[in-house]
Amino acid sequence: MRETLRDRSRARGLSRIRPPGGLRTSATVVVLATAVLLPLVPLLVWSVAGTWRYPDVVPGRVTRRGLDLVLDGEVVSATATSLLIALTVAALACAIGLSAGRAIGLHRFRGRRLVQFLLLAPVIVPGLAVTLGIQVFFVRYGLADTVLGVVLVQLMPTVPYAATLLGAAYANLDVDYERQARTLGSGPLRTFLTVTVPLLRPALVTTALLTFLISWSEYILTLLIGGGQVTTLPLLLFAAIGSSDRTAAAALGLLVVLPPVVIVVLVAGRLRGRDDAWMGLARG
């Protein structure tokens, strides 16, 4: 077998002999990008479609109605509710996750396996199955149909998730920084606030954003516990999809999808190789 210079250099990992990329790669990328982005195209187009008769490929008339809908009172209110719930859930999940994460990342204790299981199961087991079970209790304690109830039930998938992510962050933390701070005269609380938290900041930000995202996208838990009284954006969207108004549905869909995409683009760099972080997104 005659080995060409190219084979040899490629074997050595020096693909510089060939221009990085090249026509075949660009073509592949374009094809893949098209396939991946294709389903989003109709969403964009329909959101501005005024009249769009079949079988036209392009809408006959373009309308602002969809965009106006976003500013409609009901939508604004639902957006505000979604934001309120998501921010609260993110804050609570991070606080509780920080505490649990410290135990997971820094302490030795028996029953590690069990804790691992308990922190993974709520993220994976369908929320619907579990919520059907506890709905009665939400009703009994007056939490059904309330924002507080929705916030609490959304803690179920987010807290374990945050605990896992922050546990990994704590495991990567060098405890000696805290010891050093103590020898400099800083008590436990001050050390935590001025040394530990700043060191954990990247992971905290990522966790907050991801839990926000999970809450923002949540539908079934809000439906079951909110009872239709707590109206978040996903609920409005679901209703719109059921109606025959595609323009409205598409416009709302864009509104719902915007924060997640923006957040992920911001956060993507920090999540290199951390499969469990992506898990939260793949879920919902």
Binding site: D174, D176, Y177, R179, Q180, A181, R182, T183, L184, G185, S186, G187, T194, V195, P198, L199, R201
Partner: peptide, 28 residues
């Protein structure tokens, strides 16, 4: 430890990475 008039320098410098040199020295 935080109340003992004893200072300890570790093997690693353990400078707080989110603070400047000045802020590190001033910490205690």
């Amino acid at each position: 430890a935080e109340r003992r008039p004893v200072s300890l320098v570790f093997q690693k410098p353990l400078l707080f990475p989110h603070l400047t040199v000045e802020q590190n020295v001033a910490y205690g």
